[in-house]
């Protein structure tokens, strides 16, 4: 198993009137090469789950395993050796006052010990240029531009590249196209598909777009109130439709799927 969550529970503000059970005894395993899309209503616990996998949050009980190793007590920067991550906020994944090539150099060191050698060398610059060209945004000609000058879509595409060009064992995408306009979102989605296929990355992708969740990946899970309430994979997923998903939700929960941002496709 590449990733395993075992009985993971997370409660916020425990013992106060604001107590919120974000995750209830979640079990999830990913085989190498799995591309899992995650949908669910607002507050279902999707982001909390991503944060617990990446080590930004720690579970109250339960454990997180990566490559058969218990990483529950490892901190975020230690787990980052295995994980590439793109956030919803295009500002979150890059350093605005540093140049494109400096950002890439920082990301390049994800799996390597940092030294007092120069971060941007001629050889690496060629490599960065090549990698940037795959985004088809012309960023390869703007290596020394500050990232703060890029548009949201450009920044998100760059974040995606930075998270993936070092081939992480696990890629975590948390609504990484939600803050973009439809055209840019489509572009970043296409890039995501290309990159995941090219490197055969094991991927967990949260999306508010049901049609996208059906179109991408080999597995789909639906979350609600801190639980995984529905799962489909392989042929079953292939034959799913948005209507079927909504029906499933109503059947299991006895209520309408509620998400102000959900795009039904």
């Amino acid at each position: 198993m590449l990733l395993a969550l075992k009985q993971v529970t997370k409660v916020f503000n425990e013992g106060t009137i604001d107590e919120k059970v974000a995750l209830r005894s979640i079990n999830l395993t990913l085989a190498p090469g799995d591309f899992v899309t995650i949908i669910g209503s607002n507050g279902a616990g999707k982001s909390t789950m991503m944060n617990i996998i990446s080590g930004r949050l720690f579970p109250d009980t339960g454990s997180v395993w990566i490559n058969g190793k218990d990483v529950t007590s490892l901190r975020e920067h230690e787990r980052a050796r295995y994980i590439g991550r793109v956030f919803q906020d295009p500002l979150a994944g890059t350093a605005p006052n540093m140049t494109i090539e400096e950002n890439l150099a920082l990301a390049y060191n994800r799996t390597k010990r940092r030294t007092l050698k120069f971060g941007v060398t001629k050889k690496r610059r060629d490599f960065f240029r090549e990698a940037l060209a795959t985004l088809h945004l012309g960023l390869e000609n703007r290596l020394t531009a500050k990232v703060g000058l890029l548009s949201g879509g450009e920044r998100q595409a760059l974040s995606l590249l930075m998270a993936t060009f070092t081939k992480p064992d696990l890629l975590l995408l948390d609504e990484h196209t939600a803050a973009l306009d439809p055209a840019r979102a489509e572009l970043v989605t296409e890039l995501t598909k290309e990159i995941v296929e090219k490197y055969k990355l094991t991927t967990l992708m949260v999306t508010h777009n049901m049609e996208q969740a059906l179109r991408l990946g080999n597995r789909l899970i639906m979350m609600d109130q801190g639980q995984i309430i529905f799962e489909a994979s392989g042929n079953e997923k292939q034959s799913l439709t948005v209507e079927r998903l909504l029906q499933e939700f109503q059947r299991i929960r006895g209520s309408q799927f509620a998400s102000d941002r959900a795009v039904l496709g």
Binding site: E76, A80, G93
Partner: peptide, 23 residues
Amino acid sequence: KTEIGLALRATGDNKQMVSSFSA
């Protein structure tokens, strides 16, 4: 401009992002 130096600068620029790149 070194690898450590870039991480130092990024720490002041976007702390959250630096952790997600193993620093």
